[in-house]
C-alpha cells in the first residue's frame, strides 16, 4: 500500500483518534502514516455491534416478560456472551446461567449484585429496578 492510497474515511468507530500504519512513500520507502480509518473496519465493527444490540433488545423483552434477568440485557449491552461474562466475573458459566433466571436473580445478595453493577458500569438501582430504569 502506498501512502496516498491509505484510506481516510473518517470512521466514527475510531472516536476521532487517528491510527498509524505503515505504507510506502513516493521514494519507495516504508514510513509510518496516520489514517482516520477505513470504511471496511467500520462496516465489520458496526455489524458485530448491531448483533449485540439486537440480542440486548430481545433480552429486554424477555426481562419484561419475566423470562430472563437484567443480567442478560446488560451482558449484551456491554458486548459480552455467557463465557466472557462468567470469566469477567470470576464465576463458572453455570452460575451465571442460573443468575439469568428471574427467581434466582431476585434472591442474589447485595454484594453479588454490586459486583455485576460494577462490571456493567451502571448504578446498582439500574439492575434492581430494571422495569423503571430501562
Amino acid at each position: 500500500m502506498k501512502v496516498h492510497e491509505i484510506p481516510q474515511d473518517n470512521i466514527r468507530t475510531l472516536g476521532g483518534y487517528r491510527k498509524l500504519l505503515y505504507a510506502i512513500d513516493e521514494n519507495g520507502h516504508y514510513t509510518g502514516a496516520p489514517t482516520t480509518g477505513w470504511e471496511v473496519e467500520e462496516i465489520v465493527l458496526l455489524d458485530a455491534l448491531e448483533d449485540y444490540d439486537r440480542k440486548a433488545e430481545e433480552a429486554r423483552h424477555k426481562v419484561l416478560k419475566k423470562q430472563s434477568s437484567p443480567i442478560e440485557y446488560f451482558m449484551y449491552m456491554r458486548r459480552m456472551d455467557l463465557i466472557t461474562l462468567a470469566q469477567a466475573m470470576g464465576l463458572f458459566r453455570w452460575q451465571v446461567k442460573r443468575h439469568l433466571k428471574p427467581g434466582v436473580f431476585r434472591k442474589l445478595d447485595a454484594a453479588r449484585l454490586q459486583q455485576y453493577a460494577d462490571l456493567f458500569r451502571v448504578p446498582l438501582a439500574t439492575l434492581t429496578r430494571f422495569e423503571e430504569e430501562i
Binding site: 500504519l21 516504508y30 465489520v44
Partner: peptide, 27 residues
C-alpha cells in the same frame, strides 16, 4: 456474516492497515 466480520476485525486489529501485520513486516 458474523464469521467473516470476525476474521476481518482480527485482521484489522489496530494499525495493520488491513494487511494483518504484513505491511509492518514488509517495512
Amino acid at each position: 456474516k458474523l464469521f467473516l466480520g470476525h476474521i476481518v476485525r482480527m485482521q484489522e486489529e489496530i494499525g495493520t492497515g488491513g494487511g494483518g501485520f504484513r505491511f509492518m513486516y514488509a517495512a
